[in-house]
């Protein structure tokens, strides 16, 4: 039996690596996030990036987040709605019983255990150590199994030759793409374009971005205050994108 205990303990310690734990008093620990990564080194799991979307502040008529994403990442289409990419979209909900209406943006939910990553034959779908789910388009063969597997319809297949790509957001015909959580901004210490637009352009501040592992981050504080739900929580995917108010 003692071996079992040991294993559990070791796993716990491994999970806590990157977190500095200080015992303040017996039973009381102060845990702070360690450095996100060594200078010039790869991202680590010390951080887990996430979004919290307060749908009570979101409005059906507003799509500033969508416009900002499209401009930032250059996924403007060809006026063919069925085949054009959509990294983020506004979804309007009406309760079938009460008729109550809600509106919210849906994008890649950056699952902790993403079905798209499970099914990808080549490993092109992958989750970065800091929780951002991406497509490595260099090894994507365009089989689209990830799109079959995603419960959120978050991914798009590039159906035709692309033009006007942004330097930080390469995209090409025959590969699959989705929300990157603006990984290029995050790596530079910034926030995703949708979050910025929601606060600055729309003035709503319905979207909060931050480190879910850091109890002092804005997102953790808000998530501790509001009851957060996840889309299709029944699948147990522990998404990085949380919602409140639906």
């Amino acid at each position: 039996m003692s071996t079992c205990t040991d294993t559990t303990r070791r796993r716990f310690l491994a999970g806590a690596a990157g977190l500095a734990a200080t015992t303040l008093a017996p039973g009381v620990m102060l845990i702070t996030a360690g450095p996100a990564r060594a200078a010039g080194g790869p991202v680590t799991n010390a951080r887990r990036w996430g979004l919290l979307i307060d749908t009570t502040k979101c409005d059906a008529g507003c799509d500033d987040c969508v416009v900002a994403c499209r401009t930032e990442n250059g996924w403007q289409g060809h006026d063919r709605p069925a085949t054009d990419s959509q990294w983020i979209r506004k979804v309007d909900l009406t309760d079938q019983v009460t008729g109550a209406k809600t509106s919210l943006p849906v994008m890649c939910q950056h699952c902790e255990t993403p079905p798209c990553v499970d099914v990808c034959p080549t490993g092109a779908s992958f989750k970065r150590a800091d929780g951002i789910v991406l497509v490595d388009k260099h090894i994507c063969i365009g089989c689209r199994y990830c799109m079959m597997a995603c419960p959120y319809k978050a991914r798009s297949f590039v159906h035709e030759t692309t033009h006007g790509q942004k330097p930080h957001a390469p995209r090409g015909k025959g590969t699959v793409e989705a929300c990157t959580l603006c990984v290029h901004r995050v790596d530079a210490g910034g926030t995703p374009a949708c979050v910025e637009a929601c606060a600055e352009k729309a003035g709503r501040e319905a979207m909060v971005f931050g480190d879910l592992n850091d109890p002092n981050s804005d997102i953790s504080k808000v998530a501790g205050r509001l009851v957060a739900t996840r889309i299709r929580a029944d699948l147990g995917l522990n998404q990085g994108v949380l919602y409140h108010g639906f």
């Binding site: 709605p81 069925a82 959509q86 979209r89 506004k90 979804v91 309007d92 909900l93 009406t94 309760d95 079938q96 019983v97 809600t102 849906v106 419960p151 959120y152 319809k153 889309i231 299709r232 639906f246």
Partner: peptide, 12 residues
């Protein structure tokens, strides 16, 4: 995705 709701969007 949203059991119990009627759903609409620009993405079908």
């Amino acid at each position: 995705m949203f059991p119990g709701y009627d759903v609409s969007s620009s993405f079908f």
